[in-house]
Amino acid sequence: MVPLSYYLVLSAILFACGVTGFLIKRNVITIFMSIELMLNGVNLSFVAFAAKWHALSGQVFVFFVMVVAAAEAAVGLAIIIAIYRARETLNVDQMNLLKL
């Protein structure tokens, strides 16, 4: 059997990878994917905790997270398309119309 903490550490690693991706990636789409990776890491935590507490609600949360992720994806990708139309680039460093 697998210790609960292993799952949680795995989830923390995935979350941290997501955060790193958010910070170091330059392509908007990849940045957005990093956010999805973070959410996935959280999902693993939820399911692991659900097993720990013998509470199905943990799995239900994953369900909600997925819905939210889907909604975010729809909106986010639409924004990305819109910005590509306007700026012809996906590099965040060039999203610099609004600076001090």
Binding site: I35, V42, A82, I83
Partner: peptide
């Protein structure tokens, strides 16, 4: 405006996570 939306979105979802 689109840029503002994008920045808001990216950082907002990041925070949501």
């Amino acid at each position: 405006s689109t840029e503002s939306s994008l920045k808001y979105f990216l950082l907002g979802s990041f925070a949501t996570a």
